[in-house]
Write a protein that binds this DNA or RNA. Structure first.
Lengths: 343, 343
DNA sequence: ACAAAAACTTTACGCGCGGAAACTTTTTGT
DNA sequence: ACAAAAAGTTTCCGCGCGTAAAGTTTTTGT
């Protein structure tokens, strides 16, 4: 772009030798113009410094190329990773992703969805807060905008859901733990913000019963998204009070497990498998930090890339499919057992 | 908003009984209209469902209320926290923050800045990648848009900088470590992406010399943002090769320390102060996970809230100050010693 | 080579709002 | 109460682009 600044599309059309409506078509979809035309436009684009005005572009379009990505809590590296993957998938599809975090606050989530409507997004990828979400707000939003839920589920809302197959993943790790030592207790939040917790508890109960073991669920009171804090404080208390029936604890997610590991360490309990260890602790999610805990955390990995790719793919289908809503699909991604040293 | 949908400002002006230009003024700044007028508009706002069209609003405004927040790596909870704080400060000021992550990639950072120009933002809060940033791109951007750099510094770029006072914070923790045991070695990346590293090394050297101790810097090769991985692998190797001259290691940041703690654990080295411990490890930043490492990490806290608040305040001054650039300011926030068990 | 199809050009309009100018009404200070 | 200041009204234009319609040129298939 050595040439002078171009102030609008009219001017750019002139210097590129193409009519403005065709240039406009090009910017909406480069594939929609003839190859020779495209080449001439791109030559001009290379020579002059011009970009269509974002606001003017989107003003009259019924639908923009904007895609909202909403996650419940960005300070959780899990969502940071997911967001990154989703963002890049969108860009690869020629969409313009915009990232939002609800910061754990339902009111904030509602505000995001509200302002998102003003952006006339082509679609939205929403990982809702879950249990604490304002159901009616989310529902109304999904009625207006093509939305794919991911990670976290809200019954009967959204057009598709992409998440992990908790039945499969919990079944797998419970089987592993039963096979290699004492059957696991489940450690979870008393009032989990994340609906996956409920599915995981159900999966745990089912798996334990199928193996003929007694169920032992320990619930940690506490609200909010400070899972490590809750896991450490309440997990430590549960250990002290002897509320874990066996020496093996399966945590509902890795962040709780990280807190619990800290609690065990503080009490001088050696965590790991084999003799000389007092406790086995396992998690779920393969949190980015799980491999650096002491000891490294045995867990079930969620395939971030697969979840991201499938979410974006599902959204694209919905967008292109238009109004003919079709069936609501539930796309589940299988987890893999990640054996480290903690269990 | 029980009433029918309002399709544009003209219509809303009619139902609220106020002229459109005045309504327009209201939406630009509610304080700019008389209290009685404001009340009437807000009554109508309450009664009808209307929001100004975002795209039309920003099309003709010389400057929007948009503020870009750019961080280098969102999967790092440190930036997640900062982003949250900054975002909320902006909203409190009536601005519309939009969040971006460079995902550790200079090309991506450049692309963000490029597309940000199209949004005509009132200002930008930029935590640059640092050393790997494309200097000329960042420089050009800062010339066009009021920009406050935070966390990470690039010489002579941007209008203000807000970050931690590495001289003070490193000086403090070096003093602490020297006073309570063997003088610390410094563990850092060989080619740090973050320019804070360089400042911290200089501060370390200065502090050690002032205490009359020999300097011992251990550099970990490795690129990218996978600090824990690098800290664990290279830190473990350095331990094995006996490259740490004393039993005390000060890490350039907490993420390296987290990796190093994992390495020490894997080798069966007990970390902590007092007898029975092989190693003392300290970090810097008070990373959200630092309190849940095993043992909990002694570190220097950065005041997230203060950095966020001061960054936003500095940006607002720049925006309101207009073109009269004034002096480039460097606003440094002091760290606090956070004594936990690792050192 | 010829007709049909596809792509492009010309012309024209409108989106929803910002903002300026000239005028009228309300508020403020003494 | 009166003039000055502040706030609101009316009228108008333009921003940069999407998009539709009608006409023209180029490409495609046989």
């Amino acid at each position: 772009m050595r040439g002078r600044k171009i102030k609008n599309m009219e001017e750019f059309a002139t210097v590129s030798g193409i009519s403005r409506p065709t240039v406009s078509k090009y910017f909406n979809d480069p594939e929609s113009v003839r190859a020779t035309t495209r080449a001439r436009i791109e030559a001009a684009l290379d020579k002059y410094d011009y970009r269509p005005n974002v606001f003017a572009m989107n003003q009259n379009r019924r639908l923009t190329k904007i895609v909202g990505i909403v996650v419940p809590y960005l300070a959780d590296p899990f969502f940071g990773e997911i967001a990154r993957n989703v963002e890049q998938s969108c860009i690869a599809e020629g969409l313009s992703p915009i990232l939002f975090s609800s910061h754990g606050d339902p009111a904030y989530e509602a505000a995001i969805l509200d302002s998102l409507r003003g952006l006339k997004p082509a679609g939205v990828l929403l990982a809702p807060l879950g249990r604490s979400s304002d159901r009616s707000v989310v529902e109304r939003f999904c009625d207006e905008v093509p939305t794919v839920l991911f990670d976290s589920y809200i019954d009967d809302i959204g057009e598709d859901f992409v998440g992990s197959n908790n039945d499969q993943s919990i079944g797998m790790i419970v089987e592993y733990l039963c096979r290699t030592g004492e059957p696991p207790c489940l450690f979870e939040m008393e009032t989990p913000s994340n609906p996956n917790s409920n599915k995981r508890r159900a999966a745990y109960v089912k798996a334990m019963e199928s193996h003929g073991h007694a169920v032992n669920v320990v619930k940690a009171p506490g609200l909010g998204w400070d899972f490590e804090e809750i896991g450490c404080r309440e997990g430590g208390r549960a250990i002290a009070e002897g509320r874990f029936a066996t020496n093996t604890i399966l945590c509902s997610n890795d962040r709780l497990a990280i807190g619990l590991l800290a609690a065990a360490y503080q009490r001088g309990l050696r965590v790991g498998r084999g003799s000389g260890h007092a406790l086995r602790i396992a998690g779920h999610d393969d949190h980015p930090f799980a491999r650096y805990t002491c000891p490294p955390l045995t867990t079930v990995s969620q395939d971030y890339t697969a979840i991201s790719k499938k979410s974006v793919a599902a959204l694209l289908e919905r967008i292109e499919g238009g109004e003919e809503a079709g069936e609501r699909r539930s796309i589940l991604v299988e987890g893999k057992l990640v054996m480290r040293d903690s269990a």
